[in-house]
Write a protein that binds this DNA or RNA. Sequence first.
DNA 1: GCGGAGAGTGATACACTGTAACAAAGGCGC
DNA 2: GCGCCTTTGTTACAGTGTATCACTCTCCGC
Lengths: 178, 178
Amino acid sequence: MPTAGHHHDHAHEHADGHGHARGAEPAAVVARAEALCRERGAQFTALRREVLDAVVASGKPPGAYDIAERLSRPGRRVAPVSVYRALDFLMELGLVHRIASRNAFVPCAHAHGASENVVFLICRTCGAIDETTSPEMESGLGKTLARAGFTPAHSILEVEGDCGACRGKALAGAPNGP
Amino acid sequence: MPTAGHHHDHAHEHADGHGHARGAEPAAVVARAEALCRERGAQFTALRREVLDAVVASGKPPGAYDIAERLSRPGRRVAPVSVYRALDFLMELGLVHRIASRNAFVPCAHAHGASENVVFLICRTCGAIDETTSPEMESGLGKTLARAGFTPAHSILEVEGDCGACRGKALAGAPNGP
DNA sequence: GCGGAGAGTGATACACTGTAACAAAGGCGC
DNA sequence: GCGCCTTTGTTACAGTGTATCACTCTCCGC
C-alpha cells in the first residue's frame, strides 16, 4: 500500500487517564517535533519528517527496512542507514520508541517528559502496539529495585497478548462459548 | 577464556524473598535439566549441556555467536544455528532466558513455574544481568492491563542501570562526593 | 556574497543476529 | 535389522544494525 492510509486497527479507547489519542494527528506530532528541534538547535529535515510520518501513519509498527522501502521510489533510494539515523534522532527527541522484542518502531503516544516509564501492549493478533503508563506498576517496581540495591536508568516493558478488540472478535467467532 | 571460569561479578545478595542463588551450581542446573528432559521425553544431549554450561558459566551474558565460538575448537565447529536450536530448547524448558534488549542469553535463576513474570536488572557498567521478581509490580501492572482491556500472554521487563556493587565502586572512585 | 565549521545525508561495505531447507547421524521401539 | 523420530551438520540466506568516508547543506561570522 503505497498511499499513506493511516488507519488504526486498535479501536478500543483508553479507559485510563493518561489522556492522549493513540493515533495522534500527524500534524500535531510534526508541530511538536519542530518545537523540540528549535529547542535544541537541530534541524527538522525532510528526511526526518518523512521517517516520522512513516512511523505515525503505518498501521502496524514498521521496521527500519520497511520505512526505507516505503520512502524509496524509482529515482530516489533511501538507504536503511539513513532511516536508522533519523530514527535515532527521533528517539532522542522522545518522538519514537523502539520495540525491542519486535525490532519495530512506534510513535510516542504520551506527552513526553512526565514519566519515563511506559508500557507497550503488543497485540499478537492484529499486531498493533498500544502505549500506556502504569503508576502502580512503577511504584511496585521501584520498591523491588530499591530492595535489590539497583539504580535504574531506564527500562523497557513490553507485554504481548490480545487487545480488547481482537479478543472480542475471537470470542464472537469461536464456536465454543466464553 | 576457554576454561569455564564461573565467576560472578554481581556480589550483592538478594534482599527479597524469592530465595535462589544467582550463580547456581552448574551441577544443580544440569540435574534440573535432566529431570525436565525425562519428564517430556526429550534428550539432554551433549550439545545442549554444553550450551547450557556456556550460558551458566559465562561471566557476562553471551550471544548465540559467542557460544558458538566458545564451543568450537580446531577440529570441531559448532555452527550458530545449532546453538540457536539448543537455546530454543532450553528456553522452552525454562532454563534459559533471552534478553531482548541485548540479544543475549542468561540462565534462569528462579525456581521456574511459580511466577512467569521476571525482572531483569542489567548493569550498564559491569554488564551482569540479575534476575528477580516483583509481585507488587505484577499486581500493579495487572490492574493497568485490566483497565486497558488487554489480556496478557507474556511480558518482558528489562531494567538498565547500575547494580549496587558498581554504584558503590563508582562512588568510591569519583572525586566528587556522593 | 564568501568561506569556514558543523550538521546532515548518500553510498558502500561490513558485522551481527536469526531462520529455512535439506541431508546425515543417532536413539528407541519393535 | 528396520522404521520412525529426534537431533545435529551444513549451506545458504534473510533480517537487523553499524562503520567509514565523501559529499551537500545550513548556519554563522565576516
